[in-house]
Simulated assay, not measured.
Amino acid sequence: MIPMNPDQIDVVIARRTFQVKGGREAELIIGAPQPFTDGDYFRPFQVTGLGDARVYYAGGVDAYQALILALKKITIHLLTLPEVVNGEVQWLDGSEPNLGLLASP
């Protein structure tokens, strides 16, 4: 399975902004589902302001499964970034004890 546009997000369907220690921000961007060349779907996502800002994706047999798997992959990706592990990233001005992900410490 080869994504048609694996390195870009054509249509953004969701965004979340995080505050990072030192006054900067990071943003999670989730793209609309796109078809693989074989008829399955992938869902691109990107985190800017933390890590490498590369566009990643998760694939599924349909657009819904691609979304569910992307949310799981996003959670794993964010929770393993050094700034998150070190407690330097907050959501909703720090009033939430987690980042509002599927699973947060």
Rank of each mutant, 00 (worst) to 15 (best):
M4G: 03
A70N: 05
Y57W: 03
D52I: 07
P97K: 12
P6L: 00
A103T: 14
A53E: 15
I30Q: 08
A26R: 01
L67A: 11
T37S: 11
V85A: 14
I9V: 03
A66V: 02
F45Q: 01
T75I: 04
P6F: 01
S95M: 09
N5I: 00
T48D: 14
G87P: 14
R16F: 10
Q8D: 09
M4N: 03
Q8L: 06
V11E: 08
A103R: 09
V55T: 07
E83V: 12
G49Q: 07
A58L: 04
R15P: 04
G94F: 15
G51M: 03
A70W: 01
L67Y: 13
G60W: 03
L99N: 11
L101S: 09
L99G: 14
Y64N: 13
P82Q: 12
G49C: 07
R16K: 14
P105A: 13
Q90M: 15
V12E: 08
P33M: 07
L71E: 10
G94N: 15
V20M: 07
G23V: 10
V47I: 05
Y57H: 03
G60R: 03
Q90I: 12
V84I: 10
G51Q: 05
N98G: 15
P35Y: 03
K21H: 13
G100T: 07
G100R: 04
P105L: 09
P33H: 12
V20G: 14
